[in-house]
Measured scan of single mutants.
Amino acid sequence: TDVTFHVNGRNLHLKGADEELLRRIEELIRRGADIEELEKAVKEWEK
């Protein structure tokens, strides 16, 4: 799945995201995470 999140005026584009990653990103956004936290979560998922 390709999806782009718009967070605090910045874009986080995910290519090939699975349901697990999407749920994790949505949860972080609900908690008020900043873009750096979201990018870190994506990097951890990519490993």
Rank of each mutant, 00 (worst) to 15 (best):
G9T: 01
K47Q: 11
G16R: 10
E27Q: 12
E27M: 15
L12S: 00
W45F: 08
D34P: 05
L28W: 08
A41M: 09
R10C: 10
F5K: 05
L22M: 07
D2A: 03
L14R: 00
V7P: 03
I25R: 00
T4D: 14
G9W: 03
H6G: 02
W45D: 03
L22E: 01
I29S: 02
R30M: 10
K47N: 11
L22C: 04
D18V: 06
R30S: 10
V7C: 09
K43Q: 12
G9K: 01
K40H: 11
R24F: 10
L14P: 00
H13A: 05
E44Y: 11
A17S: 04
E19M: 13
E39D: 05
H13G: 01
E19Y: 12
T4H: 11
R31P: 00
E46C: 10
L12T: 00
L14G: 00
L21A: 03
E19G: 11
E27K: 12
E27D: 11
V7F: 05
G9Y: 02
E20D: 11
E20P: 11
E39G: 05
V3Q: 04
R30G: 09
V3A: 06
V3W: 11
R30H: 09
K40G: 10
W45M: 05
E44D: 11
T1A: 11
D18L: 02
T4Y: 06
F5Q: 04
L12P: 00
L12D: 00
L22V: 14
A41P: 00
R31E: 08
E26D: 06
I35M: 11
E44T: 11
N8P: 01
A33E: 06
E20L: 14
T1K: 14
R30V: 08
D34V: 08
V42F: 03
G9H: 02
D34A: 07
G16L: 05
D18T: 15
D2L: 07
V42I: 10
A17L: 05
A33Y: 14
I29V: 06
E39R: 06
E20M: 14
G32Q: 05
H6A: 05
D2Q: 04
R30K: 08
R23L: 08
R10Y: 14
D34Y: 07
R30T: 07
I35A: 02
V42G: 02
L22K: 05
R31Q: 11
T4E: 10
E19K: 13
E37F: 09
L28T: 01
F5H: 08
E36H: 08
H6L: 13
I25H: 00
E39M: 10
I35T: 02
E37I: 10
A17K: 03
R24I: 09
R23N: 08
L28D: 02
L14K: 00
L38V: 05
H13E: 06
W45Q: 04
V42P: 00
G16M: 06
V7L: 05
D18Y: 02
I35L: 07
L22Q: 03
N11Q: 14
E46V: 13
E39N: 06
L12M: 05
D34R: 06
I29M: 06
F5C: 13
E44K: 09
V7A: 02
A17P: 09
A33L: 09
V42M: 05
A33T: 06
H13W: 04
L21H: 01
D2V: 08
V3Y: 15
K47T: 11
A41C: 09
I25F: 04
A33S: 08
E36R: 05
N8E: 04
R10E: 12
D18I: 02
N8K: 06
K43P: 02
N8W: 02
L28S: 04
R24Q: 09
H6I: 14
E26F: 15
N11T: 15
R23E: 05
D18R: 05
E26A: 14
L28Y: 09
I29P: 00
E44F: 12
E27I: 12
D18W: 01
L22D: 00
E39T: 07
I29D: 00
L38H: 00
R31V: 06
A41R: 08
E44A: 12
K15V: 10
T4L: 05
T1H: 13
F5Y: 10
W45T: 04
L14F: 04
I29T: 02
D34T: 09
R23K: 10
V7R: 01
K47W: 12
R23C: 05
E20A: 14
K43H: 11
I29W: 13
K40C: 09
N8S: 05
E19R: 14
E26C: 15
E19S: 13
K40S: 11
K40E: 13
L21D: 01
V3E: 04
A33R: 06
E27L: 15
E39P: 00
T4F: 06
E37Y: 08
A41W: 09
E36V: 07
R30N: 07
I25C: 07
N8F: 03
A41I: 13
V3P: 10
R24T: 10
R10F: 14
G32E: 04
E46H: 12
K40F: 12
T1G: 09
K43C: 08
R10W: 13
K43W: 14
